[in-house]
Simulated scan of single mutants.
Amino acid sequence: MTAKSSSLVLRNDFENANSAYWERKQNDPINLLLGEDDGLFHHHFGIGNFDPAILQLKGQEREDGILAEMHRLESAEVDVLLDALGPLDQHARVLDAGSGRGGTAFMLHERFGCQVDGVAYAQYQVNFANQLAKRRQASDRVTFRYGNMVANPCPDAYYHRVITNETTMYVDLDEAFAEFRRVLVPGGRYVLATWCSNDAVNTALDEVEEINEHYICRIHPRSRYFKALADHGFAPRQVLDLTQAAIPYFEVRSASRFATGVERPYLSAYRSDRMNYLIIAADRLP
């Protein structure tokens, strides 16, 4: 599979702005410091409870404890996502759509031994992740390319699984799910983790607008996910509402000196159930 030119990958103003945002984030401590020990650099949030004792620590020890807990919760989120993939062997092929610096892809390969192809439209992230693959001696099985997740240069029915870890807010769901159906084998599975607005509660949210502006993204309503999955031939087999489990991550992140301020709208929206955090596993129908 060969990379496309930038003009083909970035097709509109939204994609150009989003790609530029991630290209600029080359020295972001909230991501880079967390992966120093195990070489797993995530671009998503975490789930589960943190150890409150770390907040009683002082100085650098306190900050180190906060970052370590954040990283643990981020990796715990990947574990739940991978559980939803179901059984895989080393011959399986998996697409990580919106792969960032590769944290999810490496954990996926280490668990199953399968081939993982990551795709992202920030060239910096692709280069970073490919260098990591070499250092982890996994470049023959885990590769990353510059491209757009909604237009993959692979044959139909090529992948056994597709995974998106908090990246669907950067795409049109109909376009993305149609593409994921195309690249999946019949009976293959698509697993996603996402934050979404809970349109059963409210459709106009200040928090959504604030988060969209911060990350240059477009948060979708919860109902849109299920409609788009059904419209494109996916049958959900597992839906995990992890909204309450997502709250502690932002609580501990708020205590870090690297907090960005976006923690507040997430906490407000999750605590009021106006936004949800979901993991959905859906099978591609024949």
Rank of each mutant, 00 (worst) to 15 (best):
M70S: 05
G187F: 09
D283N: 06
E209I: 12
E207S: 13
H214I: 05
L173Y: 08
R189V: 13
A120P: 00
D79E: 15
R24D: 14
A245F: 00
Y225L: 12
A84R: 14
T168N: 09
R224E: 12
R222T: 12
A92Q: 13
A204K: 12
C114G: 10
L205P: 06
V252F: 11
G188P: 05
G118I: 04
H214Y: 14
A235D: 15
H43F: 06
L34Y: 04
V150M: 11
G103A: 09
V116R: 03
L8F: 12
C196K: 01
T260D: 10
S19T: 01
I247F: 09
L278S: 01
K58F: 07
A92T: 02
N18D: 11
Y190C: 11
L85V: 04
L184F: 04
Y159K: 01
I163Q: 03
A204H: 12
K134P: 08
R145Y: 12
Y159H: 02
A53K: 12
A269C: 05
S272G: 03
L184W: 02
R284T: 10
D206R: 12
L8K: 11
R62K: 13
V171T: 15
D206I: 14
E36P: 03
G100V: 06
R257G: 01
E251F: 05
Y159E: 04
M275V: 02
G147M: 02
I66F: 11
L205K: 07
D89W: 10
I211R: 03
P29E: 09
I247T: 10
A138D: 11
F180R: 03
D96W: 13
A122M: 00
N12D: 15
S99M: 04
R274A: 06
G59P: 11
V126Y: 13
D174K: 07
I247S: 07
